[in-house]
Nucleic acid binder design. Structure first.
Lengths: 158, 158
DNA sequence: ACGGATAGACAACCTCATTGACCATATAGA
DNA sequence: TCTATATGGTCAATGAGGTTGTCTATCCGT
């Protein structure tokens, strides 16, 4: 039993969100310095949703939880920024496959490295033991696929 | 030293976000059943930003990280939903004070209770000891005011 | 070969934010 | 006190990003 009173229940969710923002903001600060200044938090999710083999606008929309048209517009933006390209699928003339460009892949590689660096820094602050306990606890409390890409819309007002 | 390899660095932030969403979704499911079906995740933040003594649209906009016009529109919506009301300030004829209605306060009280209930459930799943360790770790890693109200805009694409 | 299902593009619209302009009021300073 | 400036609120125009509806082209099972 702990002698201290429990903190109010609203603190934990706010801390979870703040910790997420802290990591993501730090990631984007660093990746901006490495040549990707115009990336937004959302884009990392989109890149992950596209994946190494490419995908289509419809499938992307499903993964992102938005309409295929919205996904198509997102792809257009990322195409203009030079992160993705569209090609045709020889096996299915309807599909137009969205793939990451070299620049897009570079971004993914750097993101993965920076995420690992940030985790290492947290591990140094907290101790690897305690960090793993946090990760284990979160896996237990919030199981399932962590890639919920519809967050922006989810959060907004009616 | 842990013999298991460390998980990839991107898992932790995604779990943090997923855990946040899990709590907030559960909160809104329950508070909808208690007579507040049209609340959105954002609104809790707005209520907190308004506070017990009321505030103005300009100040609200500052706290939310949006323009005063956007804050004014949000207030209009919440006024139509019956959660806030606007009155004039006898000490300053320019100011129009936004205050929570009885319904708004009811919502805040219920939210606080449900958050405590959810925390108690997590404590039962995880053990109070381990839950406190998570909270402590998050306070250490993401210190500062957890009320960052500009999250929706922050997350969006350019 | 045909009919339903699927991928994509185009158009109209909606919501919510933005900026700019404007008026009313408060406040500090000559 | 009078005036200049800052502040609070509203209105108007705009833009980003999402939605639905509709249309065409293509695939696939019967």
């Amino acid at each position: 039993m702990s002698s201290e009173p429990a903190p109010p229940g609203f603190e934990l969710p706010l801390r979870l969100l703040l910790a997420f923002r802290t990591i993501i903001d730090e990631l984007h600060e660093r990746i901006a310095r490495e040549g990707h200044p115009d990336l937004r938090p959302m884009h990392g999710f989109v890149f992950q949703a596209i994946g190494p083999h490419g995908t289509t606008a419809v499938e992307l929309g499903r993964r992102l939880g938005v309409s295929k048209q919205a996904a198509g517009k997102t792809v257009e933006n990322l195409e203009q920024l030079g992160y993705v390209e569209r090609g045709s699928d020889p096996a299915d003339a309807r599909r137009k496959v969205v793939r990451l460009t070299a620049r897009g892949v570079d971004c993914l590689v750097r993101s993965a490295r920076i995420f690992d660096e940030l985790r290492a820094e947290w591990s140094a602050t907290l101790g690897e033991e305690r960090l793993r306990e946090v990760e284990t606890a979160l896996r237990l409390l919030a199981p399932g696929d962590p890639f919920r890409l519809d967050t922006p819309r989810w959060f907004g007002s009616p």
